[in-house]
Computed example of a mutant assay.
Amino acid sequence: MSIAITLHVLSAVIWVGGMFFAYMALRPAAAALLEPPLRTTLWRDTFNRFFPWVWIAVVLLLVTGYWMIFAKFGGMGTSPLYVHVMNGLGLVMMAIYLHVFFAPFRRMKQAIAEENWPEAGRRLGQIRMLVGVNLIIGLVVIAVASGGAYVVI
């Protein structure tokens, strides 16, 4: 169980922490300092380095999450409410990530390759909005994970 919880927490920290850094630090700095061709290229290269880590995190979160659900609680039917909330919100986050990866990110890379900077910027804006939503959900999941077991309903 200690391996599962460690991998689970590290995966969440890498994913949500990466989104927090990107949204709260890198995004405003890049917007203030870089013109669209450099800004979208920076984001493409940043995502190319970050997204493989997110894929690993998603897989580990699923594997370790269900491992803990079945090993500790005996399955979903006997899991407490906070576990169901984490599971549901985590699945929503993963669906948003899959959409970002396979739709706007792919289209942004294509627009950059074609040097279509307005389209690349538009796709980056879509990604920014979806990452913002995922960041909020991720912070809620962390709050639920850290305090949920102590809520008595």
Score class of each variant (00 low, 15 high):
V133W: 12
Q126R: 10
M68K: 01
F105W: 12
A143Y: 10
L26E: 11
V13N: 11
F70V: 00
L33V: 10
G132R: 07
L26T: 09
G125C: 04
M129E: 03
H8Y: 06
G147H: 13
E119M: 08
W43T: 08
G148V: 11
G90R: 08
A29W: 15
A31E: 08
W117N: 00
I153K: 01
V63K: 05
Y97A: 09
F50R: 12
A103K: 06
A4V: 09
M68Y: 03
Y150F: 15
M86F: 00
I136L: 15
A143C: 09
L139P: 06
W67P: 09
R27N: 13
V16L: 07
Y66L: 08
A143K: 09
I14E: 12
R107C: 00
A149V: 13
F102S: 03
L38F: 14
E119N: 05
N48R: 15
P104A: 08
E115H: 14
T40K: 06
Y23C: 08
I5L: 15
L89A: 10
W117S: 00
V16T: 11
A12S: 14
L61F: 01
P37S: 08
W67K: 06
V9T: 14
V59R: 02
V9Y: 03
V85Y: 01
L34N: 06
G90L: 03
L81M: 13
I96T: 08
I96E: 02
M94R: 01
V83M: 13
V144I: 14
G74A: 09
E119Q: 14
L61Q: 13
R106M: 10
I153M: 13
R27S: 13
V54S: 03
P118T: 04
A145H: 07
W67H: 12
L38W: 14
M86W: 00
K72S: 09
L42K: 06
K72R: 02
G121H: 11
S2R: 10
T41W: 08
M129G: 14
M94A: 13
P118A: 02
W55M: 12
H8E: 12
I136E: 02
A30T: 15
A95T: 04
